[in-house]
Design a protein around this nucleic acid. Structure first.
Lengths: 235, 235
DNA sequence: TGTACTCACGAACACCGTTCGCGTCAAGCG
DNA sequence: CGCTTGACGCGAACGGTGTTCGTGAGTACA
């Protein structure tokens, strides 16, 4: 609100470097996570983070190569909270399922971080690698050979990302409720407009597809897949 | 190269509507698909499509509500090629797997369309619905009850989208090879920099994770999941 | 011929990620 | 102590995105 100083008068002490906190990669990530928590993933832009730090977007590039690297750091921060159990061959199926649940829970703790996980092909951050290794250990403890473990681990982490992404979109405001109910209506209208028996199953599927069936859907998928793995091992 | 007409002279016959093909939703989708095939999904912007049609971006909004709707139409076009088999209870496991393979193949025929599938929550286009219903029919023919079929169908289509997305990124130029090999090196370096035994499995996993293992990875995941389903039915 | 209406679309808006180079500051040296 | 020089923070600009609104030209009708 104060008027800018007259242009001919050199500003007296504009830089009080020590006064405002020095930038650092850590501080940038911390700030980005705060914005993520408060305003969602789409609000996390280089500009918005810089604004929060009271600087211009160009300043961030001294500590972060680009947006992609920032995204990767955010994902890694989210994954840092996932525990690493000791493999127990007796309980391997339960351990595998539990690990996937943990990974999904960690991603859903930061609304929208799953979207980032998809944009980051083969993340190589410490915590991502750690999760990959843990998963392989649990699977191998169950008796899968290396190749089987790698394939199964890939499928599980792919599904975990996919599930977390869809669930995030559902539970946080990414798509607004008004639009969604409109969709539901369109869908019902379209299906009923065709020959009555064209969509006998799909017409009754809606009731199993609400937010509160999210958890059972995950459990079903995990149960089926892990049971399939167990059958391979026994054979 | 011709000079513009003097401003006081009203342009004689600027609109030869019939000369350039009239716009229509169909033409817009067709043009977008051509650009998609030639330049990849990221090139498909409202501006680029309009440019190809020799008009401004605003003109498209008469036939398409927004970019999201255009995306949905593109996805629907891609799915139109997926066949719809008659359910055969004797061969249901094979039919389910084959249907997923077909869906994935259809998406990969249009590089990057899988990305669109992710951005479109619960697509309600005719072909998407048709695929949903088919999947439910195949699963129910296998003996699953409606709830089981809905959950299984959800998991399968989620995985199909996820797989097609990852495979698309891999096989088309989305991430450039130089960057990727740099990644691989970083990864190997990091893993070896830690206590020797920190990543015993992951260090040997690389060889199972090339482009040519893409197909076997899919088959493994399908096999495990469908086997798990079959076990549920038998029980 | 004059008028009224429709509608195609150019231009603008508010964003985005990224880059370049200016200008200021602090350190080093005479 | 004062000057020079090097480093570097960051404002401004570039080229992109999706979307909206007002204008003016074209058509149809009186």
């Amino acid at each position: 609100m104060t008027a800018p100083p007259p242009p001919w008068r050199r500003t007296p002490s504009p830089r009080r470097r020590a006064a405002k906190q020095m930038l650092s990669q850590e501080l940038i990530v911390k700030t980005a996570l705060e914005i993520l928590a408060a305003e969602g993933i789409d609000a996390v832009s280089m500009r918005r983070v810089a604004q929060q730090l009271e600087t211009g977007p160009a300043s961030l590039y001294a500590y972060v190569a680009n947006k992609e690297e920032l995204d990767e750091l955010l994902l890694d921060a989210a994954l840092s909270e996932v525990p690493c159990p000791e493999p127990d061959p007796q309980r391997w199926t339960e351990q595998v399922k539990e690990q996937v649940r943990h990974q999904i829970r960690a991603m859903m703790a930061y609304p929208g971080i799953a979207k980032v996980a998809w944009q980051t092909p083969i993340p190589v951050t410490p915590n991502s690698l750690r999760q990959g290794e843990i998963m392989l250990q649990l699977l191998r403890a169950g008796g899968l050979d290396l190749k089987q473990a790698v394939f199964a681990g890939d499928a599980l982490s792919t599904y975990a990302k996919a599930f977390a992404y869809e669930a995030s979109g559902w539970t946080f405001g990414d798509y607004d409720p008004e639009k969604m109910s409109e969709r539901g209506q369109q869908m019902a209208e379209y299906m009923q407009s065709l020959p009555a028996s064209a969509f006998p199953n799909l017409l009754r599927a809606g009731e199993f597809f609400t937010e509160e069936t999210s958890q059972p859907r995950l459990e079903f998928a995990l149960e089926a897949f892990v049971a399939g793995l167990a059958a391979m091992v026994r054979k």
